[in-house]
């Protein structure tokens, strides 16, 4: 939900656009970074802020892959298995992380499409921060460093740490 400080930021974002409706995606990122996922309450509030219906905001947000529609833990780990990562070990990184963090409520491991990091494949993002040139063991060490706070994580929507 939008706190008073967040509301100030929300109005700044809206003011950038000739039509407030354009602010839906940025506002949803703002809410998700704050709440840890995109709640129905936040979407209703966004609807009010930009002058549309909650159903409209939900319809829009559900189209995009970055919005979490249920609590997802503190860390979203996105592992690429697209064609370049595929041939240099991406699927092995994914399988290792999926097994290691199965049942860990703090970590959501997901398979994603090309992250535009193919020059340093295989690649993953943790809360949209890049980690490249991975082996399964290195990838797990990175996630563990985030878990322990050794590495500071961005928001789950990629907001600046």
């Amino acid at each position: 939900m939008f706190s008073p400080e967040l509301l100030v930021r929300a109005h700044e974002i809206i003011a950038q656009y000739p039509d407030p409706h354009s602010a839906i995606l940025p506002l949803a990122h703002l809410a998700q970074d704050h709440d840890g996922w995109l709640t129905n309450e936040a979407m209703a509030e966004i609807a009010e802020l930009v002058g549309t219906s909650p159903a409209d905001v939900q319809g829009v947000c559900s189209f995009y892959t970055m919005y979490q529609r249920r609590p997802c833990g503190r860390l979203v780990v996105s592992v690429c298995t697209n064609v370049t990562c595929l041939v240099v070990g991406g699927p092995e990184v994914l399988a290792h992380l999926e097994a290691r963090y199965a049942g860990d409520d703090d970590v959501l491991v997901e398979e994603v499409e090309c992250l535009a990091a193919c020059g340093n494949a295989p690649a993953m993002q943790v809360n949209y921060e890049y980690h490249e040139h991975l082996t399964p063991e290195m990838a797990a060490a990175v996630v563990d460093d985030y878990k322990s706070g050794q590495l500071r994580a961005r928001g789950v929507s990629g907001g600046t740490p």
């Binding site: 697209n82 064609v83 370049t84 499409e113 090309c114 535009a116 990091a117 193919c118 020059g119």
Partner: peptide, 10 residues
């Protein structure tokens, strides 16, 4: 940029 294996704009 989302086309698989395109990473110049990034």
């Amino acid at each position: 940029e989302g086309e698989p294996s395109t990473f110049k704009d990034r």
